[in-house]
């Protein structure tokens, strides 16, 4: 089993945190969470993961409460990092399932 944890800093107060758990070459679990630093705490805004219901994304409000959850095609860390770097906070208002 191989566990890779990665933090990508896109701004001094914004990160994309990733966890991937691989068994052989197969990804068992992934999560990619775009977070912003607010009053000293990291607050999630958008997250892609395959926990329990298969690949989906979650959107959170500025307090970290879940706003929306929808299935979406599986994305790689590279794809999500590209989206976050390009759209950053606008991701919250975009139709992510269409991306």
């Amino acid at each position: 089993m191989r566990i890779t944890k990665e933090r990508i800093w896109v701004h001094k107060n914004e990160v994309l945190d990733s966890i991937e758990v691989l068994e052989g070459n197969k990804i068992q679990f992934f999560s990619y969470t775009y977070k912003v630093l607010s009053e000293g705490s990291w607050v999630p805004l958008v997250r892609f993961d395959n926990w329990e219901i298969g690949p989906h994304f979650d959107k959170y409000d500025e307090n970290g409460s879940l706003l929306e959850q929808k299935p979406c095609p599986k994305k790689s860390l590279k794809q999500v990092a590209g989206l976050v770097k390009e759209f950053r906070k606008n991701l919250l208002t975009m139709d992510i399932s269409a991306l």
Partner: peptide, 16 residues
Amino acid sequence: EGCEYIEKIEIDTPEI
């Protein structure tokens, strides 16, 4: 048992 654990950081902002 025997798991491999890798931690990475990418800093893509000149503020560093």
